[in-house]
């Protein structure tokens, strides 16, 4: 049997990759993709725990989480469209009005 830690480790790896993407990439689209990656790593965690404790609640929550991810992506893309209309591009490191 595969130990639970392996699933969790895979999930942590996915999360860190998403984190690296958020910190490194400039493009807004890639940012949203990375956020999806992080969310899905969390889903993986939920399903893994659900299986290894023999309950179904975790899987229900994974479904909720997927629905919320859809909502988040929709809002995110809408925001980026609004930004695109103003700036003609979605470069995050140029959106630095909120500084000193």
């Amino acid at each position: 049997m595969i130990p639970l830690s392996f699933y969790l480790g895979l999930s942590a790896l996915l999360f860190s990759i998403g984190l690296f993407g958020i910190m490194y990439h400039k493009s807004g689209i890639r940012l949203i993709m990375c956020i999806e990656l992080m969310l899905n790593s969390a889903n993986l965690n939920l399903v893994a725990f659900s299986s290894y404790t023999d309950t179904l609640d975790g899987q229900v929550f994974a479904l909720f989480s997927i629905a919320l991810a859809a909502a988040e992506a929709a809002i995110g893309f809408a925001i980026f469209m609004a930004i695109y209309k103003m700036h003609e591009k979605i470069n995050l490191d140029e959106l630095n009005l909120l500084r000193w």
């Binding site: 969790l8 790896l13 984190l19 290894y52 404790t53």
Partner: peptide
């Protein structure tokens, strides 16, 4: 820097994951 921070975070998570004895069912 981004890579370093990501690795650091991964290390912290990994330590947490592999250093904990998870209370799981014995057989799926």
């Amino acid at each position: 820097a981004a890579f370093g921070i990501a690795v650091l975070f991964l290390a912290v998570l990994g330590l947490g994951i592999f250093g904990t004895s998870w209370n799981t069912v014995s057989e799926l």
